[in-house]
Computed example of a mutant assay.
Amino acid sequence: MKDGEGRIALHIAAHRNNGGVTEEIISMCPDCCEVVDNKGRNALHLALMTNLSPDVALVIQDNSSLRNLLNQKDNDGNTPLHHYSISARYHDRVLNSPRVDKMVFNKKNQNAYRVLRRKEYSVVDKKKWEDIIEVQENFDFYANGRVLEVGHDEIEKLYPTEESEEEWEKKMIKEDNKAAQAHLVVAALITTVTFAAGITMPGGFVGGDDHPHPGSAVLRNSVAFKAFIITNALSLMLSSSAIFIHLIIPVLPSDDDFFRKRISFLRIAFRFLLFSMAPMVLAFVTGTYAVLAHSNIAIPICIICLSFFPILVYIYRKLWY
């Protein structure tokens, strides 16, 4: 029985990294391992497409009867090794068998090495890089692509030249600039809102010269108000940090590693921006509760605002699982 994407129970268990269910299905129905989904991906493809620990991938690759899955291509020509290169996880035994063809190319004329090159460089990618390029003599092959026995014009179209790399980087920079502009606007709005909330203070200020602390917040002794101050300050700090990163990116030195540095800084700024949204919502919830603590609408308003977090978890699971 397949779902709308052509996946069977084995595919779903592998994609969710459920090792026990995967082993049980394979033991009861070994032939289902040959089944692929609508995009031509087998269970090993899907097991390596998740950012969870690659436990199921080890179960499949260690099964001697499933060795034919190691180098099987999907509809885009990608083998499990291509998907493993994209993932954010690493294990020293995953696809590190001599039976794995590390020189295979997909339909975009990319091997696993070139897939890694187009990612933000990390410690995990370095380990994968070392596993893929085991023999130094083969470095040029991994770096430059395959040799095609066709005419010169066809080679120019398919061979990844330095010019095509530069064009790709320019295209990526143009797309990143559009995203960065939107992120900068959002970060500025969050900074403005949190700054204004911190200055105005929920509940107002103490007035009159006869008070021992004139000008202090009326709700300064409320636990909810204290939580508001902390979460509001955290949101302000994170959004301001994101703005600062966007401001220093244009002055980065234009060296050979400029493209990677720029991508790295943009991703850090994006994470700061995302992380600033959660304390901003919490600041609104705690500030509202501090003011309306004795009202019967305080709890419903807090529940409505806190529904942001289940929505956030749902979107995260849809993107990553």
Rank of each mutant, 00 (worst) to 15 (best):
residue 110 Q to Y: 09
residue 68 N to M: 11
residue 71 N to L: 12
residue 122 S to Q: 01
residue 60 I to S: 07
residue 33 C to R: 03
residue 51 N to A: 01
residue 64 S to D: 13
residue 96 N to H: 11
residue 126 K to A: 14
residue 134 E to R: 14
residue 46 L to C: 10
residue 84 Y to A: 00
residue 121 Y to L: 10
residue 43 A to I: 08
residue 105 F to G: 05
residue 46 L to A: 10
residue 100 V to N: 08
residue 76 D to S: 15
residue 124 V to R: 00
residue 107 K to T: 07
residue 35 V to K: 04
residue 75 N to Q: 11
residue 36 V to D: 05
residue 86 I to K: 10
residue 58 L to M: 09
residue 77 G to K: 09
residue 76 D to W: 08
residue 29 C to L: 03
residue 128 K to N: 02
residue 102 K to L: 07
residue 49 M to L: 10
residue 44 L to W: 08
residue 113 Y to G: 03
residue 36 V to C: 10
residue 105 F to W: 10
residue 88 A to K: 06
residue 28 M to H: 13
residue 115 V to Q: 08
residue 107 K to P: 02
residue 101 D to M: 14
residue 31 D to N: 13
residue 111 N to Y: 14
residue 127 K to E: 10
residue 100 V to F: 10
residue 106 N to K: 09
residue 46 L to T: 05
residue 98 P to N: 02
residue 54 P to D: 04
residue 43 A to W: 06
residue 115 V to G: 01
residue 85 S to D: 03
residue 58 L to N: 04
residue 57 A to T: 01
residue 67 R to H: 15
residue 40 G to P: 03
residue 75 N to Y: 00
residue 99 R to T: 06
residue 30 P to N: 02
residue 101 D to H: 05
residue 47 A to R: 02
residue 126 K to T: 05
residue 46 L to K: 12
residue 115 V to D: 12
residue 56 V to C: 00
residue 46 L to Q: 08
residue 58 L to T: 05
residue 121 Y to V: 08
residue 64 S to C: 10
residue 61 Q to V: 02
residue 100 V to G: 07
residue 129 W to I: 11
residue 73 K to M: 14
residue 108 K to W: 06
residue 77 G to T: 10
residue 112 A to H: 05
residue 58 L to E: 08
residue 31 D to S: 15
residue 116 L to H: 06
residue 82 H to I: 09
residue 61 Q to L: 11
residue 58 L to Y: 08
residue 112 A to Y: 09
residue 119 K to P: 02
residue 58 L to Q: 07
residue 41 R to K: 14
residue 97 S to R: 11
residue 102 K to R: 15
residue 62 D to A: 11
residue 30 P to G: 11
residue 57 A to Y: 00
residue 122 S to M: 06
residue 126 K to Q: 12
residue 56 V to F: 08
residue 80 P to N: 06
residue 132 I to P: 06
residue 89 R to T: 09
residue 45 H to E: 09
residue 94 V to G: 03
residue 131 D to W: 00
residue 76 D to Y: 07
residue 95 L to K: 04
residue 133 I to Y: 02
residue 74 D to E: 03
residue 120 E to A: 12
residue 55 D to E: 14
residue 116 L to T: 06
residue 43 A to D: 01
residue 134 E to H: 13
residue 105 F to K: 06
residue 89 R to K: 05
residue 117 R to W: 04
residue 105 F to E: 14
residue 114 R to G: 07
residue 52 L to A: 07
residue 108 K to A: 11
residue 126 K to W: 06
residue 35 V to E: 12
residue 104 V to L: 12
residue 54 P to K: 02
residue 72 Q to C: 13
residue 72 Q to I: 02
residue 105 F to Y: 14
residue 43 A to F: 06
residue 93 R to P: 01
residue 128 K to T: 02
residue 44 L to N: 10
residue 109 N to Q: 09
residue 67 R to G: 14
residue 121 Y to K: 13
residue 123 V to H: 03
residue 80 P to T: 05
residue 73 K to Q: 15
residue 125 D to S: 15
residue 83 H to L: 15
residue 33 C to W: 07
